[in-house]
């Protein structure tokens, strides 16, 4: 992935209002979190440095762990949380049809196999199931929001 492609990717993520994105291809690994930008664990350094101006908030890129504003969930609180990711690109729906109650909300106890949400693309509906039982800690995307392949959808604290 060259710098132009990376720039296009990031612009796409900003345009689509995607909060968090991870890509692994060969030895290139890119992780983007909106507001803060973490790039290139295995990429040559010279491509990582010029990325700073791309940060949507104008804040220079810096490692996520050192950012004071990286969210209230500390690394220790995230430990042991299981993340459910989207298996396809599509639109995230929290309920079976518009106006009906969501499948799950934070605080709910879920069983393995229970439907958490629907991802739709090209009139293909993918009911996303919990792959283990536990408590829904967070919903990580908004209803109607586009999601990328592999994008985290929910965090679950296992039983």
């Amino acid at each position: 992935m060259n710098q132009k492609e990376l720039r296009e990717l990031i612009e796409f993520l900003i345009e689509k209002d995607i909060a968090e994105f991870e890509l692994e291809r060969g030895d290139v690994k890119v992780r983007v979190k909106r507001g803060v930008l973490v790039a290139a664990t295995a990429m040559p350094l010279h491509t990582a440095a010029p990325l700073a101006p791309l940060s949507p908030s104008g804040v220079p890129a810096e490692p996520l762990m050192e950012s004071p504003g990286a969210g209230k969930t500390s690394a220790s609180a995230d430990e042991g949380l299981h993340v459910v990711k989207s298996p396809i690109v599509g639109t995230f729906y929290e309920s079976p049809s518009p106006g009906s109650p969501p499948f799950v909300k934070p605080g709910d106890k879920v069983e393995a196999g229970q439907v958490l949400c629907i991802i739709e693309a090209m009139k293909l509906m993918n009911e996303i199931e919990a792959d283990l039982g536990g408590e829904i800690v967070k919903r990580l995307v908004n209803n109607g929001q586009p999601v990328e392949y592999g994008q985290p959808l929910f965090s679950i604290r296992p039983h």
Binding site: K85, P87, I88, M122, K123, L124, M125, N126, E127, E129, D131, G150
Partner: peptide
């Protein structure tokens, strides 16, 4: 797109696909 069929702009056939998948 993606798979409605129309005759003179009116729908004659619709498709809805559902899948079950893990990652």
């Amino acid at each position: 797109w993606p798979n409605d069929l129309l005759i003179e702009r009116k729908k004659v056939c619709g498709v809805l696909t559902e899948i079950s998948a893990d990652a």
